[in-house]
Design a protein around this nucleic acid. Sequence first.
DNA 1: AATGAATGAGCTTTCATTCAT
DNA 2: AATGAATGAAAGCTCATTCAT
Lengths: 227, 227, 227, 227
Amino acid sequence: MQKARTKDASAPVGRWGAREAGIIEVATRLFSDKGYDGVTMASVAHACGLSEGTLYNYFKDKSDLAVRASLVAFDAHADEAETIVAEATSLRTGLERLIALELTILLEARGMMRVWLREVRGAQDYPKSPARGVLRRFSGNLIQLFEKFGAFPDPKSGITFSLIRDIVFGSAEHVVWTAYVQGRLDSLDIDRLSRDLAAAYLRAFAIAPRKTRTRTNGKARTTRGAR
Amino acid sequence: MQKARTKDASAPVGRWGAREAGIIEVATRLFSDKGYDGVTMASVAHACGLSEGTLYNYFKDKSDLAVRASLVAFDAHADEAETIVAEATSLRTGLERLIALELTILLEARGMMRVWLREVRGAQDYPKSPARGVLRRFSGNLIQLFEKFGAFPDPKSGITFSLIRDIVFGSAEHVVWTAYVQGRLDSLDIDRLSRDLAAAYLRAFAIAPRKTRTRTNGKARTTRGAR
Amino acid sequence: MQKARTKDASAPVGRWGAREAGIIEVATRLFSDKGYDGVTMASVAHACGLSEGTLYNYFKDKSDLAVRASLVAFDAHADEAETIVAEATSLRTGLERLIALELTILLEARGMMRVWLREVRGAQDYPKSPARGVLRRFSGNLIQLFEKFGAFPDPKSGITFSLIRDIVFGSAEHVVWTAYVQGRLDSLDIDRLSRDLAAAYLRAFAIAPRKTRTRTNGKARTTRGAR
Amino acid sequence: MQKARTKDASAPVGRWGAREAGIIEVATRLFSDKGYDGVTMASVAHACGLSEGTLYNYFKDKSDLAVRASLVAFDAHADEAETIVAEATSLRTGLERLIALELTILLEARGMMRVWLREVRGAQDYPKSPARGVLRRFSGNLIQLFEKFGAFPDPKSGITFSLIRDIVFGSAEHVVWTAYVQGRLDSLDIDRLSRDLAAAYLRAFAIAPRKTRTRTNGKARTTRGAR
DNA sequence: AATGAATGAGCTTTCATTCAT
DNA sequence: AATGAATGAAAGCTCATTCAT
């Protein structure tokens, strides 16, 4: 799959990499706008100022291009998410920023998510490793945020980190989709939405501090402690 | 295939309806599995044991087939949802059952939702009335459930009914999708999941009784009753 | 080709003939409006209040229907032309009326002419006899009109009856077609056009009286002699 | 067929143009023989030794192919007509040559006229400019010929330039069509026919010199002035 | 005779992919 | 490496025709 990199590690790779990166950048924009089926290889080539055949020197086929573009996109997003978690000074603000990030991604790259889901997660035979890794890195940040602040859902509540992830990401997706379908994308107030959703989630996820963390006031303000 | 007009005079309609219903049933399964673009008219015809042209005796075009299939599916689901709301004795149990219904639908017809959104809601020229009506009837039930029990989100929380709908449906979709991708569909415990989610939502949606309702003891079992 | 007429010569034939005539009438209207390719057997059946299969009890196939309809139409037109010739009191007025008839036919049944040309005259294997006969009868009337008044083109002019027929019919066809394409059909003044064209033709066709007719003063003013 | 890009740098355009021209040539022949509906893209491709898809690299769709083929044909013809008018030394000889040209065109491309009328003049949305221009250039030459020699129909005769055009073109079309149907195409004597028709038309169109032209000796006899 | 659902060949068009240059 | 013309397998859809009832 991977295009045979030249033996020389220096410039050629860079050159080559630059060309590849350029294609991916263009393709990402197109996929985001029009979705997988709405993009033709010809349109990608044209937008790159290349010929169709050239694309096949860099990517095995259309699916490969989509997958690689997805990986790059998600990799970047995962980096942002990581930064958010690292810089977070409270669970609440961190959560707000993660939600805002997710909403922004969906807003800007609605189609890319579909591509990801369809081509990456959907393909059984695709080597899961890189995709898995990136996805894990991305959605894992949400969990790490909670762990960073020693916030764990009460086992009795049935809420798991996995469920939290589904709720946060699923809700965001549906919110954006609904807005899109109703033609309200422009009026989406991401900041406000993120705050409201974060607050709701913190109420929802019966959060309890974990013993490992030195929590003086332990049990009491679990929910509130999330502030 | 078989003409088989029964002797009974009213039968033809039934027969014809049966054929149509049969096609819709097959198409629903295919759309659910593969999505709109993944299904060809030829594949539907083949799966029905019919020729391609025959489909066009029953459905104007592919979009019409998808829309009609969606309507049938959602109509049935809307009926179920209505019953649930009507029979609900508490907000909590009603919510649990609505969530369970949604999870079940998604489990059985994952792709159909997409088809609906794409072909029905997306098509500007399609006579909105039936589609709109069905959709409203379906997703509206969630809201009606809350209203039935006089439960309204606190305006200060930023939570609206629209947001509630997005959270409930979006989360459900993502939960099922994740389970599907991870091959855990069979081990989904819908009942437990529904209970846990309902409980989380009731905590999340800062519910307050509404003054307009003359329910002297009102406040009592609204927010708290939801517990 | 001909549908097996029932043995009984009386009513059944009439009945059957009436049904057939009805179909032809409807088909003629449709062909005239939309042309051969613009008409589907289904549309004919629907317009007749019949089912598609029934048409095939009366007509071998679509071409047969078109041919038979053409024959009927041209037969009727030939009758009209015959009447015009029979009633004509002068070459000029007779010519005017024949031209007017031709223009009217083209105006009302533009598509039918095409059908005739395509399916009847174009088909090599179709038994030429009936079609040939009708056509001869129709276009032959123009020649008979000239003969009736002893008007024969001067052999030295190169003008033959065949050429006269081509000029008269060809011009009419082009006039109507041009008007149609330019959307001026409604403003066509058939009477005036017929008069002007007839006059022009009489100037054009160097007409000489034939000896057989006792018209002593014949030769001189050909144009005027045409009166 | 053969890729064969010549070494010459300017050649590619030529080559490409040659390929396109080759397709148009083949298509023109087919359209001429069978008419628009009688020609399938597959048949064109096959006749070119190309695959169907290839046609779409050169032409947007079937209509585009027909239109472009028409334009090429009419453009060439319009050039010829222009030359004839420019070189004409008398109305009579010019008219004879224009008629001969028209007869030749129809002989070679009977069906193309229909395609032109249907696809080019019939299409409202087609950029009228090139098509309009070519058509005007072509049929306008007939009128310009008359104007060149100061020959204008007598207003009282009802004959207009538009009608002259219809008569000349319509008659030619019908003459060729009749000959075709009767299998006499080979025996058409175009030169003689052109002379006879031109003479007839000059008798028919009550031609008068126009006052605007300073032709004091206009000498009255319009018919004769046309000589 | 009449029906009309079923057929299936055929149409136009798209597009991922290949390969000679 | 790059090109881009050529490919050909689908796709959605239409419609004349058939045939069991």
